[in-house]
């Protein structure tokens, strides 16, 4: 494995609310042989504003993000949803602006969600005897916009986890960004259904690659139910 410098884009959620995910990500990237840089000017990819219909604000944040990250060879995010914003949605924000559209496309091409990046690097975690039985939540944007899901399962299995599938691994957890605040009754009902499916298959851990989904599910998980963990944190914990 050649040593490679990657820019870490942690996402605002990880920066402010779940920094342990960022820490685990740095450690995994280093174990995979990467030099990690954290561009300090980074804030938010703009997805919440894009989803709320505040297109101008989303565009401003996208331009800002592009400027910060475009000097790097690769950008890694421990969030499927933010990765999809950068890699799949940015180009749509600049459909009437060819210059920015090209820059968005270029950044999109070198932006990777963590699990995909690790697998593409050829890295695999060593098997652990302590590995729990897990299930994987196919978070919506990661799964539908980026086709992610296989990578995380591969890493989990390599770490020695038994991966058991929920009836609908790809059913939305109810987060949806600000949706979870604008329509909390509906979001919570969706989350309870998701958690019910995880409880039904009696796993130790419910794994996701999305800090938003994790926050949503952690907010309602039963203390006796499965633990809800980010892939990076679980892999890092297994060593």
């Amino acid at each position: 494995m050649s040593e490679k410098t990657v820019a870490l884009f942690v996402s605002c959620l990880v920066d402010q609310i779940s920094p342990e995910i960022g820490v685990a990500t740095v450690r995994l990237l280093r174990r995979a042989g990467c030099q990690v840089d954290f561009p300090d000017a980074q804030t938010c990819c703009g997805q919440p504003f894009f989803n709320s219909g505040l297109r101008n604000q989303a565009r401003d944040l996208a331009r800002r993000t592009i400027e910060i990250f475009e000097p790097y060879d690769a950008v890694v995010l421990p969030s499927g949803s933010c990765s999809s914003m950068v890699a799949a949605e940015y180009v749509h924000l600049f459909e009437d602006d060819p210059d920015w559209e090209a820059r968005a496309e270029a950044l999109g091409a070198k932006t990777f969600e963590l699990s995909r990046f690790l697998v593409r690097q050829g890295w695999a975690p060593p098997g652990s005897d302590a590995a729990p039985t897990v299930t994987y939540h196919d978070s919506c944007h990661a799964n539908r916009l980026l086709g992610l899901g296989g990578e995380a399962r591969q890493l989990l299995e390599s770490a020695g986890c038994r991966v058991v599938e929920m009836v609908e691994s790809d059913r939305c957890c109810g987060f949806g960004g600000l949706f979870s605040i604008k329509m909390p009754e509906v979001a919570n009902a969706m989350t309870r259904e998701k958690l019910r499916q995880a409880v039904d298959i009696e796993v130790d851990v419910l794994v996701s690659i999305d800090p938003g989904c994790l926050m949503q599910m952690e907010g309602l998980v039963d203390p006796d139910g499965p633990r809800v963990r980010h892939l990076a944190c679980l892999l890092e914990e297994l060593g």
């Binding site: 920066d15 960022g22 954290f38 605040i181 926050m215 952690e218 907010g219």
Partner: peptide
Amino acid sequence: DPSKGRKLKGLAPRPFREIWQSELE
């Protein structure tokens, strides 16, 4: 309660960027 019964995490004691500067960089 904006989340109607769902536990809402507060901001972490230290943001990631501080941890990065002091421990990881």
